[in-house]
């Protein structure tokens, strides 16, 4: 169609979009490229090599980063499992249990971690653990992560439950399924893509968190972001760029996965209203 008559077309918007994507990706791509630099300096380019990746896994600092990565991964898995479970129950309550006391305030409560600025949550959580005499460390990080992962797990699950017609469960109940069976055998399989998306997002959010973890980690316990932050404070080193690239790839992998799962889920079951 002639662009002059296409009402959706605005001159310049395409260039702005390219500019926007360029801005978003340029720093990341540059760090990725430099992570393959065969030079101990971050400024000079000495040709391609994987030496900094080898350094990440076998170098002097490898034990530190491996321990941090272990903490990050186990916390992310536990926090994602816990917050997804809580979110499934909450989403079922919000969209399948009719009205109950405290329903209207519940939605605000679930989204509260998104509304309170991260630094405020961090301060409040630190003060809380200190006030009740809870020793900060691995467990305090995990608890804090579960809290702020709940809304991220909740949103895709709730969207999914809303999209699934409750007639399927009604049919199960008519056929003498108990309500638990209707949930386990009918609703749960239907909302599985949403649960999976929610789990992945919670996992990524937990893996990425720096500010809250930095406050509640206590001495001695590090996650990858806090270990990286500590190292950056002393200057950017080439091995940091290799770690950054690896984390970047993990994020991209998970988002792609979550996106694809969401797509396959859309084709089945969901009925347009």
């Amino acid at each position: 169609m002639d662009k002059r008559f296409d009402l959706r077309h605005f001159p310049g918007f395409r260039s702005v979009t390219f500019f926007c994507l360029f801005l978003l990706y340029a720093p990341l791509v540059i760090v990725m490229i430099y992570s393959f630099n065969d030079s101990p300096s971050i400024t000079n380019w000495d040709g391609l090599s994987l030496r900094w990746y080898i350094d990440v896994f076998y170098g002097v600092e490898a034990p530190k980063y491996k321990a941090a990565a272990f903490n990050s991964l186990t916390i992310a898995v536990c926090a994602a499992v816990a917050s997804t479970t809580i979110a499934v129950a909450a989403a079922t309550a919000m969209h399948r249990a009719g009205s109950f006391r405290g329903r209207s305030i519940s939605f605000g409560l679930i989204n509260l971690p998104l509304m309170v600025p991260e630094i405020v949550t961090a301060v409040a959580t630190l003060i809380f653990f200190s006030a009740v005499g809870f020793k900060t460390g691995y467990l305090s990080i995990l608890i804090a992560h579960i809290v702020f992962c709940i809304p991220f797990a909740y949103l895709p699950i709730a969207a999914r439950i809303q999209a699934v017609d409750s007639q399927y469960e009604q049919a199960a109940l008519d056929l003498y399924a108990s309500r638990f069976e209707a949930f386990r055998l009918v609703l749960l399989p239907l909302i599985l893509p949403g649960i999976f998306s929610g789990f992945l997002l919670a996992f990524i959010i937990s893996l990425d968190d720096f500010i809250i973890t930095n406050f509640v980690k206590g001495a001695g316990v590090e996650t990858l972001p806090t270990a990286i932050f500590g190292a950056v404070k002393l200057g950017i080193k080439p091995n940091l760029m290799a770690i950054s690239t690896l984390l970047l790839l993990v994020s991209i992998l998970f988002v792609t996965l979550s996106y694809l799962v969401g797509k396959t889920g859309e084709k089945y079951h969901a009925r347009p209203k």
Partner: peptide, 30 residues
């Protein structure tokens, strides 16, 4: 529309407890 009618409070309880104890109360203490 409400298959799990009457279970709302019980299903919501974990969220209330976790966010209540570890976010609402901490902000109060702060």
């Amino acid at each position: 529309s409400s298959v799990y009618h009457g279970l709302g409070t019980r299903l919501m309880l974990p969220s209330w407890i976790v966010i209540g104890i570890f976010l609402v109360i901490p902000v109060g203490i702060m």
